[in-house]
Design a protein around this nucleic acid. Structure first.
Lengths: 147, 147, 147
DNA sequence: GGCGTTCTAGAATATTCGCGG
DNA sequence: ACCGCGAATATTCTAGAACGC
């Protein structure tokens, strides 16, 4: 099947359920998508996902779900949501692999369990001053608990 | 002239000058653009601009400059930067006109004077603490002076 | 001439003169290199450089000069040395067919003037102060931008 | 210590949604 | 979707931080 023929409407019409941000819903959907398993797919155990072809992923998959086609932007979103890159070490040479697949994971991002997504909370570090008196900080309000 | 033939290279090769946000540079450029005067153009006095064909503007012009094609988003940005809609009143009926051209204005958005753009400041209400010493607020970095 | 046949040893044998870091010397050399002008080249005025084919640049050019093949790493180095991305106000980005070239610039990175490179200074975080107040840890980051 | 590589976060703008006037 | 706006997410560019050499 030609990838260019694949209609991504399914992704666009999927339910934007509850309070899960669009990024996470789209992310989970596109990893689950079996047509693109050669480009991005779940790892064997379903506990993380692999980007097998970064260039095709960036230029072919990303723009079908998001308003950009840059891998760096995608990674920024992942980190914002607490995903961590799984670093691969070659046990033989004790060197880091090159051109290996990119692997990311999150404790609430699992194969077949989209109900876990709502547990993913964003990291926002900024504090917001609500009141200042006599050069003294009277009260701080932060948008969200850290992490 | 056919719009599809119009070569937007002038706009595409223009670089964002100094510290003016991209939105304002793009805005000013597309209003100045004479090829699209039937859709969006300066008012006679050059003190405000008119959207003459909202549908074509949203669907044809906006996506060439931004990552969307919605008039509402465009208006949101205008309001964020302090632009105000000029309300047209039909003096006969004392009713607001329908389907009339949309007019927006800003004291620093004038025809032929892109140097004024840098005076446009965004409205952001949130303060961010950068340093606290001895229970005293040493420096606040606010994203913007409270207009 | 086939690019794959080109021997990049020239880059490795270039003079590592004075106190210019290897990254800057390599950078300047590979932009000057005429064989790869379809991938990376000086802008017309020689005041900035363009990456015309990001994917080929990352996979073909970068590993010949550095120990990686990731665009993101390359960009990190550029920013570390004070290079700034030139933002274009076009939004050709919505069209995924062809993303515009990436343009970076630095006041001391010019075509034909490798003697300017030694003026490029890194931005280094000099020291970090952590302060204890009321049994609370307040962290103050004193970085020295020094250009 | 400076430099290079890697992963993550900061910060500003941009886009979207929806409320209250 | 009349009008202006708050707020959350999304996109972009740059910087922080850890580590090896």
């Amino acid at each position: 099947m030609d990838l260019k023929v694949w209609n991504p409407c399914a992704a666009l019409t999927m339910k934007q359920s509850s309070n899960v941000p669009a990024f996470l819903s789209k992310m989970w959907t596109l990893v689950e998508e079996t047509h693109t398993n050669k480009i991005i797919t779940w790892k064997q155990n379903g506990q993380s996902f692999l980007v097998l072809d970064e260039q095709r992923f960036a230029k072919e998959i990303l723009p079908k779900y998001f308003k950009h086609n840059n891998m760096a932007n995608f990674v920024r979103q992942l980190n914002m949501d607490g995903f961590r890159k799984a670093v691969h070490i070659d046990s033989e040479t004790v060197k880091q692999e090159r051109d290996g697949p990119v692997e990311f994971q999150h404790p609430y991002f699992k194969q077949g369990q989209d109900d876990l997504l709502e547990n993913i909370k964003r990291k926002i570090v900024q504090f917001i001053v609500t009141q200042v008196q006599n050069n003294q900080l009277v009260s701080l309000k932060h948008k969200r608990p850290l992490l």
